[in-house]
């Protein structure tokens, strides 16, 4: 009984941490843009980086993906998906920009 309660508290804490991190990252991103805290050149990069960190937060705290052995399958699939999406989307950009460049 105690075990279950402890487990529950631990999970709740993890969700709360995740929620606060996600919230904080979102607020910082909005603040960066709204108050123009960075020079324009770095703004986009800054928001992208914060977005990426937020992505990792979601995976870690909400989808429970981590480096433990029991999550290896999920992690593998995720990394593979990332690889394929990078190949497909990145490849498309390379090819189309190359074609565009040669047309102008």
């Amino acid at each position: 009984m105690m075990d279950q309660q402890a487990q529950y508290a631990k999970e709740r804490r993890s969700y709360l941490v995740g929620f606060l991190l996600a919230l904080g990252l979102s607020v910082v991103s909005f603040a960066l843009v709204a108050a123009k805290l960075l020079p324009a050149d770095y703004l986009l990069t800054g928001v992208f980086v914060l977005g990426f960190v937020q992505l990792l937060v979601h995976f870690r705290f909400f989808l429970h993906i981590n480096f433990s052995k029991s999550k290896r399958d999920d992690l593998d699939l995720l990394l593979f998906s990332t690889l394929i999406i990078v190949l497909m989307a990145g490849g498309t950009l390379v090819v189309l920009f190359n074609l565009h460049h040669r047309m102008t």
């Binding site: 394929i84 497909m88 490849g91 090819v95 074609l99």
Partner: peptide, 21 residues
Amino acid sequence: AVLSFTVWLHHFFTMGQSPSI
């Protein structure tokens, strides 16, 4: 399976990309 996602352009070699691609 992985390599199959890296070769699609060979279906249109002649459609205008640069030689290096």
